[in-house]
């Protein structure tokens, strides 16, 4: 999958690891756009859910604010002020969201003035469904102390979803649909009763094939998630730290 990704290069600027922060600060508008797309793809959902829950904003407002926030990140070059040595990108962005929401009216005006648009499709309906179909469960509203945890959890969810989607696309492009289906049924369905034997019987293949397919899919999923993570980290050190946090290494 990583090879595939690098092969995509050509007319696209090479978004190498740890480059998103640097690219977002670039004077080249095309580079900045690509960097922002990467950042937006990884963060829009946690930002949207955070605005909905933390700031208790109605759906439409939260959608506008999410889009407005990323536009403001571009226009006001907020990433220029980010210092990986001082904080995590996630924490920095969350604090920027807080500040943005508090100044929403001003921000909305800027959004109208500016000509920037987001190139990433934001599936707000899907995000809303994840929040409980619009009916907010008071128990789901995070306490002020757990906001950081909530934002992190949603960010990990978003990152894993992107990595799964990458894997699906890669499998489709490389005639490995069956491998992805096995992965989907065993690792993504949440079905506790599924077993390698059941899958082998269902697909009419030996259990060792199921084992190998799943080992491959997990390895590629892991590689994809780490690549996505690397894209939004500012340094090797931050990447190592974030990888441990995202995968729960050291916590279990």
């Amino acid at each position: 999958m990583s090879n595939d990704k690098s092969k995509q290069g050509g007319d696209r600027f090479p978004l190498t690891r740890w480059s998103v922060i640097g690219a977002a600060r670039s004077s080249n508008p095309a580079e900045r756009d690509r960097a922002m797309d990467t950042l937006c793809a990884a963060y829009w959902k946690p930002v949207y859910k955070y605005v909905r829950l933390r700031w208790n904003r109605p759906t439409e407002d939260a959608q506008d604010m999410t889009q407005g926030f990323f536009v403001q990140v571009i226009e006001r070059r907020l990433l220029d002020k980010f210092d990986p040595a001082k904080s995590r990108l996630r924490t920095y962005l969350r604090l920027c969201v807080d500040s943005f929401v508090m100044n929403e009216e001003k921000a909305a005006k800027r959004q109208k003035r500016g000509g920037n648009v987001l190139h990433v499709a934001l599936d707000f309906a899907g995000a809303e469904e994840e929040l409980g179909g619009g009916a907010m469960d008071p128990a789901a509203i995070p306490s002020p102390e757990s906001l950081e945890d909530f934002f992190e959890k949603e960010w990990v969810r978003g990152l894993f979803e992107l990595a799964v989607e990458d894997l699906r696309k890669y499998c489709e492009a490389n005639e490995r649909e069956r491998t992805f289906r096995l992965f989907e049924e065993y690792d993504l369905s949440g079905d506790e009763t599924i077993s390698y034997q059941k899958l082998a019987a269902e697909y009419g293949i030996p259990v060792t094939d199921v084992t190998n397919a799943l080992a491959w899919a997990r390895r590629e999923f892991r590689r994809g998630a780490l690549e996505r993570l690397g894209d939004v980290c500012g340094s090797e050190e931050e990447f190592q730290r974030e990888a441990r946090s995202v995968f729960g290494w050291g916590a279990r």
Partner: peptide, 19 residues
């Protein structure tokens, strides 16, 4: 795509860790 539940995320983590 369908959102990943907390349970699925834990499963993915465990699977990704396995060498």
């Amino acid at each position: 795509m369908k959102s990943l539940s907390d349970k699925v995320i834990e499963r993915l983590r465990a699977g990704a860790e396995e060498p």
